[in-house]
């Protein structure tokens, strides 16, 4: 197996790229702040306008970090799912994790009004939404793990995941139908996805969760590589299939679930970045893919967010639209250029 050394240069380049995108992201926004002031803020020096200081420290930097965390976790969970299910169409949400989160949020925001008629149309706080989403994806995860212990076939698991998704989507639509418009609006805005809402406390919590997920993903690298030969070969190589399956599912749930809870269901990144990375590095080896996918995920998310902010204008676009608009052509272009799907 090729060692990491072969890829050292490539890793240095993409790490620098990540750093560059991070700086670009925090220096561009609706309000144009001179570069000098940005540097002063980052270095903790006196800044001309107090609002600039606040915008950079409490809006842009948390947002950029959230973007990186989101990109990393969704891409890694996409990679894990694609290898586990040996299916290029799998993504972080095939197990119904995002629909579980959506159900949690929908129940929380809209369920109340279903029970009490009009009810005071209180806007639900950000943290409560995150908790509801976490609970929702956790319940679905639990269901999946129980099913996974009963089902031997990984493909059946994939289909069961999709079924869970359909059921939760149906419940959400019933809830949406009966709720009042303010709550529906709040739910819909959550489902658009949003990176700019996390306070520093929340970022620390999210970072912890993502790190736990990433560590589990790194532990899975060995079994993921053996799974490249198929489950039977993997078993003959001493991989405990059932155990690694749990490990991979749990890692995915933590990564995708926690991110979805905080920033909403972000489309596309999880599906596209693993493909992108495979095409660029031309290897299915997870020693390379896991770190590379994480970094590319961060880069792509930062770029998407920078575009979504429409620098210089007062408006901004929903991040979910941008991830697909930017991401899809890149994947198409790579596939057409190489004329061959590398999976």
């Amino acid at each position: 197996m090729k060692s990491l050394k072969t890829y050292r240069l490539a890793f240095i380049i993409i790490s620098v790229l990540l750093l560059f995108c991070f700086l670009l992201n925090i220096s561009l926004g609706s309000v144009s702040i001179p570069m000098k002031e940005i540097i002063h803020t980052v270095l903790g020096q006196e800044v001309e306008k107090e609002s600039w200081n606040y915008i950079i420290l409490h809006y842009r930097i948390p947002k950029a970090i959230t973007a990186i965390l989101t990109g990393c976790s969704l891409s890694i969970s996409g990679l894990l799912m694609q290898t586990l299910f040996r299916n290029p169409l799998a993504g972080p949400f095939v197990l119904g994790i995002s629909s579980g989160a959506s159900l949690g949020v929908a129940l929380f925001i809209m369920g109340g009004s279903l029970l009490t008629g009009v009810a005071a149309s209180l806007i639900v706080g950000q943290l409560s939404i995150a908790i509801a989403a976490t609970l929702g994806s956790f319940v679905v995860l639990l269901a999946i793990v129980i099913v996974a212990s009963k089902v031997r076939d990984t493909m059946a698991l994939l289909i069961i995941g999709l079924m869970f998704g359909s059921i939760t989507a149906a419940v959400v639509s019933v809830l949406s139908y009966f709720t009042n418009k303010e709550k529906l609006q709040q739910y819909i805005f959550w489902s658009f996805g949003n990176l700019g809402n996390l306070s520093w406390d929340q970022i620390i919590l999210l970072t912890t969760l993502v790190l736990v997920g990433l560590i589990l993903a790194v532990i899975s690298i060995k079994s993921l590589n053996s799974l490249l030969l198929g489950e039977n070969y993997a078993r003959s190589l001493g991989t405990h299939i059932q155990k690694s399956r749990y490990l991979i599912i749990v890692a995915t749930s933590i990564l995708a679930g926690s991110v979805t809870a905080y920033v909403g269901p972000i489309a596309f990144i999880g599906l596209a970045v693993p493909h992108l990375t495979r095409q660029i590095f031309n290897t299915p080896n997870h020693h390379v893919l896991v770190p590379a996918t994480a970094i590319y995920g961060g880069i792509l998310m930062l770029i998407c967010d920078t575009i979504a902010q429409l620098p210089g204008s007062e408006h901004s676009l929903p991040i979910n639209a941008i991830t697909s608009i930017v991401g899809a052509p890149v994947v198409i272009w790579l596939l057409v250029r190489k004329r061959k799907m590398v999976f």
Partner: peptide, 28 residues
């Protein structure tokens, strides 16, 4: 085995090296 391996993009050396998995450390 008779079955085909799913990851056709692995190169020869990588496939052979996977045979060493039972002996490698936790990350392989």
């Amino acid at each position: 085995l008779t079955e085909h391996i799913p990851a056709k993009n692995l190169n020869v050396a990588e496939v052979i090296a996977l045979g060493r998995q039972p002996y490698t450390n936790w990350v392989g």
